[in-house]
Amino acid sequence: MDVPELLEAASLLVPERIATENDLTVNDVWEYLAHDEWEVALDLLEELGDVHQLSLGFWETLATAAEQMRLDRSAAWCHWRGYETRHGIIRADLTLRPAAEARRQTPISGAGVLRPMWSIGHRTATGGPALDIARLWAEFTPFLEPGGHATVRLAPLDPSQWQHLRPGQVITMHEDQSVAGTAVVLEIQRPPATVTS
């Protein structure tokens, strides 16, 4: 399928009753598609997907459209949302340690590239912290500077190891044995019992 067909297919998966904060609906998407405003239609579909939990097929279709339009960040976001549809959502308030106190001296990408380790309460046989890996997506910022602060989403390598997390719990981020940042869990959404495509 080409881009307009993919966007039309994704539009058909959005319930007509949902709207963005600005009262835009899937009918507005159809208007943009009629005028070949594909990128605007894609952005609006992403917004609608953030308002209402949509299917894995919706996110996969949008990711393919974004890839065909060479919109790398949008494609990465749609793949990320597909992962969350399958495995659930973990959001946290992260503060990185300042450059003077940490190994990292450069900003980290906010687009799900970094796969740091996290101390989330597990212990090794000897009683030390057992670290678990999760990719990190910083909301509303392309980069997170040392000492910076952002709301982040986490995509665990093994989601079953993260089932015990609760809002308010403090977890620490590691890029080596030292603490690179501290996060407070804000939100946990379990995946639906059955994920449909």
Rank of each mutant, 00 (worst) to 15 (best):
E187P: 09
I171T: 03
L45P: 02
T106V: 14
T85P: 09
E84K: 08
V29M: 06
Q161C: 07
Q161G: 14
L6P: 01
S109M: 09
G148K: 04
A10C: 01
H35C: 13
W118M: 07
T126R: 11
I89Y: 06
A9V: 04
S178C: 08
H52Y: 00
A99R: 10
D158C: 11
S55Q: 02
I188P: 01
D50I: 01
E175S: 02
S74W: 00
R115E: 14
V170H: 10
E175Q: 07
M69V: 01
A92Y: 06
L13S: 00
T182S: 09
G82C: 09
T20M: 03
V14H: 03
L13N: 02
G147C: 10
A66D: 01
D28A: 03
R97W: 09
L6S: 06
R153W: 14
H149N: 10
Y32R: 08
I89G: 08
A41S: 09
A100Q: 15
A125D: 10
R17A: 00
V195P: 05
V29D: 06
V152C: 02
N22E: 11
R103K: 12
W59G: 10
G168H: 02
W38V: 05
S160G: 01
T124I: 13
F140M: 06
A65I: 09
D72T: 13
G57Q: 05
L13C: 00
A10E: 05
D132V: 01
W38G: 11
E139W: 07
E145F: 08
L7S: 02
M173V: 02
E31M: 08
R104C: 08
D93F: 07
A100C: 15
L96E: 08
